[in-house]
């Protein structure tokens, strides 16, 4: 089979929009099922009281990574056609810090705020308005920021290249790290479980 389908011309641009919508439904469904439509559930991560963000995220990364690794190894998918965005190291470090601080202040990230909005959270509506304000501000300031945002361009750079290790070895290390993290997450939750646990979707009191 020739995968990725779109790259081999299995369907065109118009059909890709339908694929986008269907993939989005799956994305939104599992985010909501995980409880990520709730800011209190999400921020429980940063108080070591509910490590669901770490668990879900790393299970998803490992699942997709193992799938791509084995399907690539079997020759089913051409991994050179899978998009890896360029690394802009310093802007990504600064952007990541801002985004992390914004996560704790606002309670969501962009994707989870959409799911929260879909399930009626009014604070998510305000959060989304904030995202638009932030984008508006950075768009208007772009002529002055473009130089910084395009700095430290390291091109298409992957961890196997950085670590000088084979692809499979890095996949193995990521799986080990995730398993260690899952064990550690449980230990941290037990240690910090002194206060009220994250809600299960009830109305916050």
């Amino acid at each position: 089979m020739n995968l990725p389908l779109f790259k081999f011309g299995a369907f065109g641009d118009e059909a890709s929009l339908l694929v986008a919508f269907l993939i989005g439904i799956g994305f939104g469904f599992f985010l909501e099922q995980a409880g990520f439509g709730s800011a209190r559930k999400l921020t429980g991560q940063f108080y070591f009281q509910d490590m669901a963000v770490f668990r879900v995220m790393f299970t998803a990364i490992v699942t997709a990574l193992l799938g791509l690794f084995y399907l690539g190894w079997a020759g089913v998918v051409d991994l050179s056609m899978v998009y890896v965005s360029n690394t802009y190291l310093v802007p990504q470090i600064v952007g990541g810090l801002l985004l992390g601080v914004g996560f704790t202040i606002g309670g969501y990230c962009p994707g989870t705020s959409v799911v929260a909005l879909a399930t009626g959270k009014l604070d998510a509506l305000v959060f989304v308005a904030g995202i638009f304000l932030g984008i508006l501000a950075i768009g208007m300031a772009w002529p002055g920021l473009e130089g910084f945002a395009s700095s430290t361009d390291l091109g298409r750079l992957t961890l196997p290249e950085v670590l000088h290790l084979p692809f499979g070895a890095v996949v193995f290390l990521v799986v080990l790290m995730a398993l260690g993290g899952f064990w550690g997450a449980g230990a941290l939750e037990r240690r910090f479980a002194d206060r009220d646990p994250a809600d299960r979707g009830e109305e916050p009191s």
Binding site: F27, S85, G96, L98, L99, G106, Y108, F132, L133, A137
Partner: peptide
Amino acid sequence: RFALALVGGALMGIGAKLARGCTSGQ
């Protein structure tokens, strides 16, 4: 809560553009 949601959202918007993606894309 609304004030902090607005500030947090704005930081997200700025951070995601600098980093060329957010928690989903990056």
